[in-house]
Design a protein around this nucleic acid. Structure first.
Lengths: 352, 352
DNA sequence: TTGTACGCGTTATCAT
DNA sequence: ATGATAACGCGTACAA
């Protein structure tokens, strides 16, 4: 065994030579078989005699052969690449999702091609066209603005996994967080702490999840018998600055409130900053809850109570779903339920 | 003019038909020319008669032809794709760099292929091999752990732009931030505010920039005639938690200090949290400076004074440098000097 | 200026 | 089970 290992080590490819220059044909001639046979062994397309198989395997290792994905793609085979359209490559929420996708896909030998749609359906469509022209084997679309029909359409040419909506179609699988329930959870948490005047900073109305979160808030209020006060709902756009503005507007309105539920963490951070500037302390003066549980929530001041959604799990599950789709299986992946992560930005309302 | 536009609009390709099925050969036969001619027009390889040129252009538009990048790659032509190896796809610092790259490359018709090396030189090498096998036209490597010789080597097979080090080699261009100067700036800022006992939380010693930043700190101290106190230098690893630990250790050591300079913003955030937990206020009790000027620095509590480096510019410049390299020009891009961004985490030391 | 023919590295379809 | 041979879509010498 030891000797064998040594021998193998010695025939290993010269690290100076680019491995990409060794072709399948070279492997074939090196051990006196046809290129078809080598291809078959590589892809497991057909049964080959153990003898040749072994010889070929050895030659592949010795020559350091790596199949050329480009040629594979041209020949109509798979490219072992999948397109991932996200909205911004540096999104704090989807970043971990990309990471999850990369991991999961990498384990299966696939390479992700990341492109950004910038929340613009036309741009997304362009991205998809580029991806398709690059012959990706499948597509993962993270919560875009594309119409359902456009999505169904592309699913006709290639397997698609889409997040952020619920949609059934052939060759298409969708994965969606339960925003409604998450918002209920957050509101309920505040309610259970004794808060009754809970402001809500809503998300960008162009996103469906913004409505779902608002509805979850209202639903929890209703369940607790707390009347809904429209004056406590502030418009936002999911970005930090809108959180700042919302709080300033709220404070200026002199509407009474003891807690704020922001429809995402970024706005919660902005809200916290605005409160800080006005000399209000979190959670002593105002309790604050976010949504998404970004990585930054752990180290914010104070650490932010938030609704956890797990984008990295989202990414992993999207990837495995697509992998299933690609191998003809039917995906059954489901996203975990949202859950509260209670940190230091919320506390019980002091009794009267 | 108006009429022309209308006419053009009417011959635009049927949006339902996938544009990827129209081949160059089809265009050729559609207007009675050879495929070479079409190819030549597409690439500007040779002069063709205006007549045919126009006919072909029209046919291309009418049929909605899109060149197949995969076939191009195989044929030895360019793939119009460049590999980008970053360390983590969700890095708060390099994220914007990826965005800058994407933008700049996109404008030039190139597609980036993002892969993550996870601060592991072997993994980086694997990434590069994958990228090379996918026939990328060039490589952008964001501050990896790869050896200079490995880098020089890959630059032999494809143009490379590398950041985070200064390195000269054929087919290679490097872009580096001035970490030393940045750290000087930060320290000087604190010094000019009257601080004399300035703690330093250092970065991961495996990164060269960590040493440069420490040296910048020491240099500024020396220039101001402030003796260097090793007890004020705390080890860190560039992550939030190490900032927390550093401050706890510092506080427990009972060493006197009035300011902290963290070698990056993430550790500064951790430090701020640790101070908060111990009841120390920033900047009233302790001034705090970070490094990198992450997007989150703007909305942290208090907004963090930091050394601005501009990762998105880094990305853009890396991309244009590579684009220059690819078109045979010699890149001359230079990174902007680091500069202080003064926010609310620092203040003058009250007089004695 | 333009067309022909071949090659890029694989997979797929035939035969055998 | 295995081997020729033809695509795949495009670039490019070479020829005309």
């Amino acid at each position: 065994m030891k000797i064998n290992k040594k021998a193998n080590a010695e025939v290993k490819p010269d690290p100076r030579a680019p491995a990409t220059k060794v072709t399948l044909a070279m492997v074939a001639s090196a051990c006196g078989v046809s290129s078809s046979t080598v291809s078959r062994i590589l892809n497991g397309t057909a049964v080959v005699s153990p003898k040749k198989r072994e010889a070929v395997d050895r030659a592949i290792a010795a020559l350091g052969f790596t199949p050329n994905p480009v040629a594979r793609g041209l020949a109509g085979g798979r490219t072992l690449s999948v397109g991932v359209v996200t909205q911004a490559i540096d999104s704090p929420f989807y970043g971990p999702a990309l990471r999850g996708i990369e991991e999961e896909l990498g384990n299966a030998g696939y390479s992700p091609l990341f492109v950004s749609g910038h929340w613009n359906s036309e741009e997304e469509q362009r991205c998809i066209d580029v991806l398709l022209s690059r012959r990706v084997d499948g597509l993962i679309i993270l919560t875009g603005r594309l119409s359902d029909t456009a999505l169904r359409n592309t699913a006709k040419s290639v397997p698609v996994v889409v997040t952020g909506r619920r949609l059934e179609a052939p060759g298409l699988y969708s994965l969606d967080f339960n925003n409604f329930q998450g918002a209920q959870l957050a509101t309920h948490h505040l309610l259970s702490l004794g808060h009754r005047s809970i402001a809500f900073i809503s998300g960008d109305p162009a996103h469906p999840d913004a409505h779902e979160r608002l509805n979850g808030y209202r639903s929890a209020l209703k369940a607790a018998g707390v009347p809904f006060n429209p004056a406590l709902v502030l418009p936002g756009d999911y970005r930090e600055h809108s959180g700042i503005e919302a709080v300033e507007r709220l404070l200026d309105s002199r509407e009474r409130f003891t807690a704020i539920f922001a429809a995402n963490d970024q706005m919660a951070f902005g809200a916290a900053l605005a409160l800080y500037r006005r000399g209000l302390r979190v959670p002593d003066d105002v309790s604050l809850v976010g949504f998404d549980d970004l990585a930054a929530a752990v180290h914010s001041i104070p650490p932010l109570t938030s609704v956890h959604q797990g984008p990295s799990e989202l990414g992993q599950l999207a990837a495995t779903s697509l992998l299933n789709l690609l191998s003809g299986r039917v995906p059954t992946e489901r996203l975990p339920e949202p859950r509260m992560v209670i940190r230091s930005s919320t506390r019980a309302l002091p009794g009267p």
